[in-house]
Write a protein that binds this DNA or RNA. Structure first.
Lengths: 190, 190
DNA sequence: CGCTAGCTTGATCGAAGTCAATCACCGTGG
DNA sequence: CCACGGTGATTGACTTCGATCAAGCTAGCG
């Protein structure tokens, strides 16, 4: 785990790995509010400061460039601004999907949804729609999963065990997970 | 309650009232994923279709215009695209704030957060920062509040009575609420 | 080796959900 | 004018899901 917290004074593109965005309450309760996969954009254009904390969740390569450079580049290049708007709209959609998960799904549906998200987003070269099975190493710890799902690590662990015993997933090692039938997993997402 | 569901083929600006955006699971569980207040923009630029349902939460005036009109307008006017990006980023921030609420706050903190949100957003002419007290009619039913907070109506009701008995809020009628001290309410938001 | 961090498992507890009864408010029509 | 349904909200009794507290377990590493 790299796990460095740092305020983003620059912009970046995630080239490899996963970056997690999170928010915290004063008393320490934490919520992961976004996961950025390659080749997502990282940063907050034209903003005072971002209210979220960005943190590497796994080993990450990023392609950084200074704040000002991008902002002038945007102003000159309307196509870029369009791209930026598109990515922001995509993130908004994902955030809203996740709100449905956080607000209305059960613990086991949440965990299934998380695994489904990872399975469909981890490999940027593949089209999510035609993935039928997957094997991957989880880019985050159980604690991160819990913070993403609004659960505790114990509950995450129990639900993973449950999904495993019901043959929906296979747990090769703590981090290595195999999904023999993605459709079956999807069914568990609510 | 107007409460019409309609797919948005046009764009609109909310001029008065509140529009709620929601998502649903197959089995009917529902989550409100956004509330649009005046003068928010409504619609999804350059998109196939929106995955959310827009519905009037109260009596609403909107200023509508066709999809194509806006899209050509945007292409011609870079300032407009910038405004659109700004609003989208604002919505993303709000969505992420709400994810923290959904995932990590208790029922009573959720209800307090909702009231705080309404108190600070309902009057578009006022600067949220310098509101010290407020009285307003709730633009939504208890069921909507519950769907927004990921709770049941019973729990919302109980928490409202609790906040009332603790003198944080006053309930004039079912819909009419007064917040004598907004700071005190904010304290209950976690 | 033994230590630590991350994970799992078990026992118990409590917050929120569920089920159900009642209430308050209001239009509507006898 | 009052009886009536109907909708939305409140309140109570009970249940349940996930949190909490507390051991162990496992793998990597000095």
């Amino acid at each position: 785990m790299i796990g460095e917290t740092e305020p983003i004074s620059t912009y970046a593109n995630v080239m490899r790995g996963v970056v997690k965005l999170s928010k915290m309450l004063e008393d320490g309760r934490q919520q992961v509010v976004g996961l950025q996969f390659a080749p997502d954009f990282l940063g907050r254009p034209f903003a005072e400061e971002s209210a979220v904390t960005a943190e590497a969740a796994s080993a990450v390569d990023t392609c950084n460039f200074p704040k000002l450079a991008l902002e002038t580049l945007i102003t000159q290049n309307p196509g870029l601004e369009r791209r930026l708007l598109q990515q922001t709209l995509k993130e908004l959609d994902e955030a809203r999907d996740w709100m449905l998960t956080l607000g209305r799904k059960t613990a086991s549906e949440k965990v299934a949804s998380f695994l489904y998200l990872i399975a469909t987003h981890l490999d940027p070269t593949r089209n999510p729609a035609d993935i039928v099975s997957a094997e991957f190493t989880l880019p985050v710890t159980r604690a991160d999963i819990a913070d993403f799902l609004g659960l505790t690590i114990e509950t995450v662990s129990r639900q993973l065990t449950k999904l495993r015993s019901e043959k929906v997933i296979e747990v090769i090692t703590n981090r290595q997970v195999s999904i023999p039938d993605l459709k079956k997993l999807h069914h568990r997402c609510g």
